[in-house]
Simulated scan of single mutants.
Amino acid sequence: MPYLVLAVAVLCEVAATTALKFSEGFTRLGPSLIVVAGYSAAFYLLSLSLDRGIPLGVAYGMWAAAGVALVAVIGVVLLGEGLTWVQVGGLGLVIAGVLALELGGQHPQ
């Protein structure tokens, strides 16, 4: 269950970051409200996932990797932004790093 809470936190953060692009420097009310609500919900849910047992380094690593990857995909698919092979490789390395954090913390029982 804590990983589901973390996943929803990431989605809230990604929604807020995407809305930030459309807020035009906080001059547009609708997107600005989504930014504030999204980041507020994201940090609250992140704190719940930590409280429910996900180690800080793992939670933040997953948060960062998933957020960066999703925002990059949204940029390409919805906003027409480019993504080079070097950037794709970088995203892969970030995801591999998070997997290393998660798997490295597993101890056989």
Rank of each mutant, 00 (worst) to 15 (best):
W85E: 14
L50M: 10
G75S: 07
V73G: 02
Q106Y: 10
L6G: 04
Y39P: 08
I74R: 04
G75F: 07
G97R: 06
F26Q: 02
Q106K: 14
G82V: 12
P55N: 13
L45D: 07
L78E: 01
Q106P: 00
L103M: 06
V86E: 12
H107I: 15
L99F: 10
L50P: 12
L46A: 10
A96G: 08
A16K: 03
A16S: 08
V10A: 03
P31R: 01
A72L: 02
L45M: 07
A59Y: 05
A9S: 14
A65M: 09
M1V: 12
I34Y: 03
G89D: 11
V68G: 02
L4G: 09
F22W: 11
L83A: 13
A19F: 08
A66D: 01
T84F: 12
W85G: 15
W63Y: 14
L48M: 14
A41F: 05
G89A: 14
S47M: 13
L50F: 08
L56S: 13
S40N: 05
L45I: 06
G92F: 00
L29M: 06
G75Q: 05
W63A: 11
P31K: 03
L6E: 04
L33T: 14
S23W: 04
L45R: 07
A64T: 15
L11Q: 00
V36W: 05
L99T: 10
S23H: 03
V88M: 12
S23R: 03
M1C: 07
V35P: 09
T27I: 00
K21P: 00
M62L: 15
Y39D: 11
P31V: 04
A16Y: 03
I54Y: 04
P2H: 09
L103I: 14
P2I: 10
G67D: 07
G53C: 10
E24I: 00
A100M: 14
A72C: 05
F26P: 03
V5A: 07
A42D: 10
G89P: 08
V98A: 08
I95N: 03
H107L: 14
L91F: 05
S40P: 06
L91A: 04
L4Y: 11
A7S: 10
R28C: 00
V77T: 11
G97Y: 04
V88N: 06
V71I: 15
Y60K: 11
G30S: 08
E13R: 02
A69R: 06
L91T: 05
T18S: 13
W85P: 14
V94D: 05
A41Y: 02
L50V: 09
A19S: 12
T27N: 05
E102P: 00
F26E: 04
T27G: 02
S47E: 10
M62A: 15
F26N: 03
G53M: 12
L99G: 11
I74D: 08
G105C: 08
P2S: 13
V71A: 12
P55Y: 04
H107E: 14
V73Y: 00
V8P: 06
L103D: 00
A37P: 04
F43I: 13
A19M: 01
G89H: 06
V73H: 01
F26G: 02
P2E: 12
Y3F: 13
A96T: 10
G105Y: 06
W63Q: 09
A64C: 15
A15W: 01
G90H: 01
E81N: 13
S49H: 06
V94A: 14
R28F: 02
E24W: 01
A37W: 06
A7P: 00
P55V: 13
V88D: 02
G38Q: 05
V73R: 01
S47Y: 07
E24M: 03
